[in-house]
Nucleic acid binder design. Structure first.
Lengths: 166, 166
DNA sequence: GGCAAGATTCAAAAGTCTCTGAAACTATGA
DNA sequence: TCATAGTTTCAGAGACTTTTGAATCTTGCC
């Protein structure tokens, strides 16, 4: 397999993986492209390599920057913006967890708190309350467990945690 | 808030949460409905409550059964099939992890193995190989960590693991 | 076997999410 | 200040996903 085939294959897979992880396909592809590029790339380079429009490239690059998965890299004496990818996998996963937690888990916890107080004390209502209570308990634990993970550093996570579990 | 409002609110949120977790909205709504129903429901009940078509109900119930999130419950003397939900949250999360791992992580690992052997030894190729190697290492660890989690039982996970981390 | 209740399938329709591209905007430096 | 290189926006087009509903299949009973 040649280098170009390898890159192509990698970018496609990363795109597929990303799109089932809450980041869009193109977003993941841009990240993949930057991961395997030895040098920073400009928006134009990215458009060209991935055959996407200017608008699309721009929107997805901004999103990646928001998620802290890509950083701007200004070259001295150049007006153009260049971009590089976060290459530490734990940071990548961590940043994705942070976003997903905010977007998914937290709204769910909010709803669970609201509905934990439905009126009535007939058996059906009691059953409902019990189910909600169980889910709330689990979600709160999951939430704080994720917080701990997210605040831990890369070395501890990859070196200690993953081995500890195994 | 009344019981019905609470249920409605719960079903909608669960649906939203689910759809960003790789299970479709309707699938998650059916699961939510079954979670908060004290008694098993038939396909017809589900169609009625969620206002969805027969085909849609059928397909999504099958999918939930495949994922082990819902079980058939046959009532003696009745031809109709009734359904109940998996109510242990850890089992729910666990089953979702199992499916996602199979669908996402494993294909990625396969690709990583293929592209780890690109030809050439120029600096660009070496850089590419290094990136791929790092990702492979991380993914393999993540894969086996998830295996361990998935094989652990509910009590250990919720009782010990989550507290240990915190 | 014949029948009906129920379950399943799948092509077409509806709905959702993503991308394009041209226009508007902004920053730089002469 | 103006010209220009570069960036951002967003309405409409296009791609992809989910849902519908009617036709088909299966099951158990007489």
């Amino acid at each position: 397999m040649t280098l170009d085939e390898g890159k192509e294959s990698f970018i496609q897979s990363w795109g597929t993986l990303g799109s089932s992880w809450g980041i869009t396909r193109t977003m993941a592809q841009i990240h993949a492209l930057l991961l395997v590029s030895p040098d920073p790339l400009s928006a134009e380079d990215i458009m060209e390599e991935l055959q996407i429009s200017r608008g699309n490239a721009n929107m997805n690059i901004r999103a990646l920057i928001d998620w802290n998965l890509v950083f701007k890299k200004l070259k001295t004496g150049e007006r153009k913006e260049y971009f590089i990818a976060e290459k530490d996998m734990w940071q990548v996963v961590r940043n994705i967890i942070i976003q997903r937690k905010k977007k998914d888990l937290e709204p769910m916890l909010k709803v669970l708190n609201e509905i934990a107080n439905v009126e009535g004390d007939d058996p059906e209502t009691e059953e409902f309350k019990k189910v909600v209570r169980d889910i709330k308990l689990f979600s709160n634990k999951a939430d704080s467990t994720l917080d701990t993970l997210v605040n831990s550093d890369s070395n501890w996570f990859v070196g200690t945690f993953m081995n500890m579990i195994k």
